[in-house]
């Protein structure tokens, strides 16, 4: 599209390589897409949740890919989409999931003056760069019409495999090393033999504790309930029902009073229909028809972070000891 117009204009002015301005269509697309790219970049920096940041970044990268295309770098444009938005961003998201999706940064700055320094440095550098560019006063440009005459990919390839072949090979080696390095870094050596299912079962019998499999989570929850503990018969949540990983991350949601209320209402309803009123008293909840089951909502949203902070406090105490 833009590239086509650019290519045609460059073919028209094949003899006069230097031109002063791009097409109006490219200018329009630059302003629109550029704005979006800046917004995406700002979103990357400013949004609290890492996932949102990643999405914003992906958007910016796609737009950059378009700009590459507009600048005659067809190969790079495609590679940008494949490698960055495809591979790299996926890798980011993988790690995000591993680390915890819901882990959101608090906006409170802990380092004194860090934010102001950062802003000052950023504004200073930006001003410098832009003023430097302004001084450069490039009024005309050559365009890639001649360079891309045989197509962008063959032109790149002919350079890459001749002039830059050593660098290319070295970079290939670098990639291999990086892959091996990443594997090594994340690899955890098993120091004992992993237990077989049979051994685990025998161990459980010997310990005489939880002979059956662990109870399932989220018995009464309405959400995707892996992170919500099941309730014991007396209504207290049981940690056994949720994954230890979620517990240690503090991403387990509490069963709030609303949920308990809801349980009580359900019980009451069941009791009413069976004529057994005594059972509902167990929860100490009189029947209240105003509080409808459907209105009850999650209350444990902040609990994840609170739990994490509590855990951090405990760790600090341990460190000071």
């Amino acid at each position: 599209m833009f590239s086509a117009s650019e290519a045609s204009s460059s073919s028209m002015d094949a003899l006069n390589l230097a031109v002063n301005s791009t097409s109006a269509a490219e200018a329009a697309s630059f302003w629109v897409l550029g704005t979006i790219a800046v917004i995406g970049a700002l979103g990357t920096v400013l949004l609290r949740k890492a996932v949102h940041s990643a999405l914003c970044l992906a958007g910016t990268m796609v737009i950059l890919a378009l700009f590459y295309l507009a600048n005659g770098a067809y190969f790079l444009g495609i590679v940008q989409i494949v490698v960055y938005t495809g591979a790299v961003m996926m890798l980011f998201l993988f790690v995000l999931m591993l680390v915890g999706v819901s882990a959101a940064d608090s906006l409170k700055e802990t380092l004194k003056g860090q934010r102001w320094l950062a802003l000052a440095c950023g504004l200073g550098l930006g001003a410098l760069l832009i003023s430097g560019l302004g001084q450069a006063s490039i009024t005309s440009f050559t365009g890639l019409g001649a360079a891309n005459a045989d197509g962008n990919v063959p032109a790149l390839a002919s350079q890459l495999f001749t002039k830059y072949v050593v660098a290319f090979e070295v970079v290939g080696a670098l990639l291999t090393v990086a892959a091996v390095g990443a594997t090594l870094l994340t690899h955890r050596e098993r120091i004992e033999k992993s237990k077989s299912q049979r051994e685990q079962a025998e161990e459980r019998v010997r310990a005489n504790k939880h002979l059956p499999p662990l109870p399932a989570p989220g018995v009464y929850a309405r959400h995707n309930a892996v992170d919500r503990p099941g309730l014991l018969p007396d209504g207290t949540p049981s940690d056994l029902t949720v994954s230890a990983t979620l517990l240690s991350r503090g991403q387990v949601r509490e069963v709030g009073p609303e949920a308990l209320h809801r349980v009580a209402v359900l019980e009451q309803r069941t009791a009413d229909s069976h004529g057994q009123t005594e059972h509902g008293r167990m929860y100490g909840e009189p029947h209240d028809p105003d509080r409808d089951v459907d209105d009850a909502d999650d209350e444990g949203r902040g609990s994840g972070r609170e739990a994490r902070e509590a855990r951090q406090d405990a760790r600090e105490e341990e460190a000071t000891k």
Partner: peptide
């Protein structure tokens, strides 16, 4: 704090 160091680095670059 690595971010403080980054500010120094960034300031130096500027």
């Amino acid at each position: 704090f690595v971010r403080s160091y980054a500010v120094s680095m960034f300031g130096g670059a500027a």
